[in-house]
Each structure stands twice: as C-alpha cells, then as structure tokens.
Nucleic acid binder design. Structure first.
Lengths: 328, 328
DNA sequence: ACGCGCGTTGCATACGGATGCAAGATCAGG
DNA sequence: CCTGATCTTGCATCCGTATGCAACGCGCGT
C-alpha cells in the first residue's frame, strides 16, 4: 500500500497524502482527517525509507558500543535508546569488537546515513577511526573525551568524583590508600587516577599502591585486591569502577579482611549491584539520567552538528556513602 | 557524491557504478576495478537508503527488548548483534517499556521496513501486539513461545533444565525443595516451574514452598528466600533465574544459613556472575552461542519468513554444578 | 567471410514520498 | 460584483540506486 494507491482510492493527489502525514504541512484539517482515517482502514503507513531518501534525514542514531559486560553500559544504553525513541529517533546498534577491522564494522555507519553518532565505547576506537566514523555528521562521545579530534562529549566529572573519594577516605581516618586502575589509558581512568593521586598528596595521605588491572572486570578487581593485601600497608582502596570494586571486596572478605574496619573500599559508577546488601559499596554515582538528557538535548539543538565547535559537558555526580567505608 | 556524478567523471553509466558495487553483477572485472578504485579516491560509497528503496530490502533487523537489568540479556544481545553484523545485517534496537503505548513504541518497526524482527522481550508483549508487530515479515522469538500466534522461536529447553536441577537436588540428598518463580506468567517461568514440580513429585521429594517473586530481580530473590526460611522445612531452593538466586543466596547467608549444608541453591541461565567465587552458583546454562547461531541460521535460510510454518527450536543446555549445591 | 552467441554496457524506468511552484478555491473588503 | 489576499490542492520533479531490456562488440565455428 503506497501513498499513490491510497490517493487514487480517495481521488486525491499523492501530495495530499504526503501532507496529511506531515505535521505542519499545508492541508485542510478535514482532508487530513479523511485521509488519515482512511489510511487506518486500509493499513497504510508512510514508508520511512522513501521518506529518508527524499528528506535526506533518517531519524536514526548510530550507537557505538563495545562493552556490555559492565552493567553500567546496558543501563546507560537502555535509558538512552528510550529517550531517543521519545523524540522519534531510532537506535542502530554497532557492537564493535577489539581486534577485527573496525572500519569494516563501522562502514554501515556511513552508508546508512545516520543523522548522528553516539559513541559509548570507552576504548578501542583510536582518534583517526573516530574521525573517520563521525566524518561529516553530528557526533557525541559519552564518557570519553576526544584526543586529537574535534568532537563534542558528555562526560562525568571524574576528577570531582575521585577527589570526593579521596576526601572521604581522609575523613574516615584512612592514610595509606591504594588505587586500582581499569584500562589505564582510557579517559575515565586517567582522569580518576590523576585526580585521586593529586588529592591524596594534598591531604597528606600516602599512596600505598597503584595497580593496573588491565581490564574493567570482576576478576581484575580480585587479583588487584590480593596484590595489595600481600604487600600490606593499605587501609583504603579506590577501584576505578564498581565491577572492579565488587571483585576486590569479595577477594578481601574471603581473605578474612574486615571491610571497612581493616580496609575501606570505594568504587565508581553506582551500578545497581553496588547497593546490594552484600556489597553495600561506597561509590561515586554517575547520573545516567542527566547524562542522557544532556546528550539528547545536544542532539536536538544541533550543538553537536558537524560545523559547530565541539562542546564538552561535564556532568556532576554524587558521592554515595555506604557500608564499605563504614557509613552504613 | 552520488553514483551518477562518479559515473560522469569516469565517462561510464550510472548502472556501471551500481554494478561495480553489486557482487555477482554483470560487469567486466577491469571496469569494476577501475570504478572501485576511483570511488575510493573521491570517497564515494553507495547510499544504503537508496539501495533499500529500490531493492525493498533493508538489511536491518529490529530487535525488541525490554529487560536490560538481567545481565543475561545484554550478553545475548551483544552476541546476537555481532553475529548479525557478520552477515551484513544491522540491528535496530527497540527498547520497550511496560505501560506506555506499545504500538506507538513499535510503529517504527513497521514503517522502517525491517527485514526481520527478533523479539527477546520475555514479557510485556501480548499475543495480538506480537502479531501486529511482526505482521508480514520474518520474525523470531527468543526465549518465549508464541501463544496464539504463529511465530517461530528459539528457546532453551527449560523443562530439561528444571528436571536436571530437580534430579541434582535429589542426588545430593535433598527431599524438601522450594521453587521461586520470576514473573509467573512468562513462558520461561511456566516451563521451568511445571517441569520442576512434576519431577519433584516423580522423585518422591516434597515441594515445601512455591513463591512468586513477581519480578526477576535480586531483591525479589532475597525476600523469597527469607519467606522460605521463615517457614522452615526446606533444604534446597531452585530460583527461576540467576539474578533471583543471587539475591536469595545473599539473604540466606546473611541469615546465618549455611549454603549448601543447610540449604542448597540453584539458579538458571549461568550469567557470568554465577561463576564468581562469592556466589559459586549451581545453575543450568543457556548456551547463548547456540541460541544465536540457530536464530541467525533461521534468518539466513528463510525458515522464519512470513509464509513459512512456524518452527520451534529447542536448545539443550547444560547443568553447571558449583558450590551452592556442594560440589565445588 | 558470415552469422551466431555470449559477455558487457547503457538506457529508461521503478522504488515511495517530499516539496517548489502554479492553479484553483474561498473569503473579506470596498 | 470586483480585486486581492490567504488557504488548498495538484503537477512535476527530485532523492540515489537497481535492474529489465535492447544494443553493441568480440570471438568462434563453418
């Protein structure tokens, strides 16, 4: 069923049908009403593909992701895709894998003429690939900053969070603190690590250990915690995110360490698991709602369009104190 | 840069350009070579939208999901979207929300002319809505069966799993067992629950409790476990999935119950968390790889096309024995 | 040398809807 | 009743690629 057929049946022109389904188009209310009603009967709905072709607007946003293991990302993606749907945009998912040819994986991003690209992959994509993938279209990075490229981004204030953790450790009397990195070269890690180390020094605390987990995983957190435990001298650990912290917490408890009495533990993100009684993890909450709102607003007002100067939006988070630092 | 412009520059016809990018098209190898090479220089790539319009094939699969909180689904979706990408299909994500108007949320599914629909939402969608959403196109349900509609599906052998758990409980000497449902009306729950109860009776064990958690969540698992504990009389609990089981396990341990000595615990799915030393959860693994393979194969060979009779593919799983039933 | 057949190429048109422009309809004011 | 302004409507064309069909060229067999 096409607009032309429908038009013929009603004895109107195809343009009329098109206008009936175009908000704000120049058409008499009665005609629109008549067409829309008849369309429902014969189950006509405008073909989005044809519309894309003539309007050169797809209403599709490409979402590039690489890590669905860390629950923070599914939660973010879920909210994001819903927010986009609410304003009439669909999400085309690009689940990229380290290793295989990225340009091949992302080639559809260009061929499909997506209106915008949202990149949530903290790692993997190098500057040039980013540039290539987003070339000539609106783009937003979430949770990483562009290094050499000029892209807008929405990112949690990692430094603020890391300082809040450091201050909190200091406030509860800890003086020999450790930091466990996830992937050390990621934006998020660098910002958290640098700010934490700096504030630790400023507060006169000692950085008793600095470990690179090499991945943001539960098991990396476990072995990092055991390393720290083996060398002693630590009374608080800041893990670069909650998944690492969860592993660390479990490993410490299994080793007979009392948390928080012997060692306090903090994470970052505030994934739902952090609130589970078993973990009861102090952490710095990344406000997913706000991140999504800001990103969607940037899309709507075009401030991330290709010509525009890149915008960096820092989102404030919130320290959530829980039992793993003794405040439960 | 369009095919026509490129063609004019090279002094060939637009058809030639089209053929150069169409595998198997009738074109001389040298001409194709020449066009493809030149295209790279001027950064031409075929416009997928236009191609969709003329071929009336989009290479897009709509993926309908509703629950990203249970880690099983992100894991499944990640694998699925990668497998689809590998055969040249992109995934358009439809994250639906209970409550708001589903037909509105899914209207894009029809307007976008997706080649196929894969529905992973265990709940929410009623029969008629399913019918409406998939009308006239290839469709596959994953992890639920169609009730009154004629749709193909790929689903874990839930009954097999539930029986394996019951048998395992019996084998380790448990006789008073409980079952904790997630959403009781879902396909997965009903199949697991019925098979479990039946086998429990066959083995001469007693069903000491049957609780409906009303949702597949950690907290529902906790309160179910506490309920069961309060009424005593139970030495093994089968939770309808791993997230429930995780909550249940934690609640039991916090109450001073020894697992598995006092009460053995089993889940279903084998999400990555189940293997964590802290949970060390006996569970029935749903083989995500196989499920994805089968679904993708069905798409490829067209056995789920609109005209075809519905196919139901039962996927066998595997009992993973761990510490929560004493086998660690 | 002629004719047939196969492999290439271009032409024309289709896919379904959007939109600038002009024509027609409607209405108010004089 | 006439004129001009405003609102509706239809016509024609465009978006960028795919493809059936006809035309062309080349090589081979007789």
């Amino acid at each position: 069923m096409t607009a032309r057929e429908l038009a013929r049946m009603l004895g109107v022109s195809q343009s009329a049908v098109s206008r009936a389904f175009t908000p704000g188009a120049s058409i008499a209310p009665e005609l629109r009403e008549k067409i829309v009603r008849f369309a429902e009967n014969v189950d006509y709905h405008p073909n989005a593909i044809a519309s894309m072709l003539s309007k050169s607007r797809t209403n599709i946003v490409g979402i590039v992701i690489s890590d669905m293991q860390n629950p923070f990302y599914p939660a973010l993606i879920e909210q994001l895709s819903r927010a986009l749907q609410r304003i009439g945009l669909q999400s085309l998912m690009f689940n990229i894998t380290r290793g295989s040819d990225l340009e091949e994986q992302l080639s559809a991003l260009r061929r499909y003429n997506v209106d915008a690209v949202i990149i949530i992959s903290a790692t993997i994509l190098s500057g040039p690939t980013l540039q290539w993938a987003t070339d000539g279209r609106a783009a937003i990075l979430i949770n990483r900053v562009a290094e050499d490229t000029e892209l807008s981004c929405v990112i949690c204030n990692n430094a603020e969070g890391a300082r809040a953790i450091a201050d909190h450790f200091h406030a509860i009397g800890r003086r020999r603190v450790a930091y466990v990195a996830g992937l050390s070269h990621t934006t998020t890690n660098r910002e958290r690590q640098n700010a934490f180390i700096t504030r630790v020094a400023e507060r006169g605390m000692t950085l008793s250990a600095l470990i690179d987990g090499n991945e943001y995983s539960y098991y990396a957190g476990r072995s990092a915690a055991l390393d720290i435990l083996a060398r002693g001298e630590t009374d608080a650990i800041f893990f670069a995110n909650d998944i690492l912290a969860a592993g660390g917490l479990d490993a410490l408890k299994e080793s007979g360490v009392r948390v928080p009495e012997d060692i306090a533990v903090a994470g970052f993100d505030d994934i739902s698991m952090a609130a589970w009684p078993h973990y009861d993890l102090t952490t710095f909450r990344q406000p997913i709602d706000t991140i999504v709102d800001v990103a969607v607003t940037m899309l709507e007002n075009g401030s991330c369009a290709p010509g525009q100067p890149p915008v960096i939006r820092r989102i404030s988070g919130e320290l959530i104190k829980r039992g793993s630092t003794g405040v439960s």
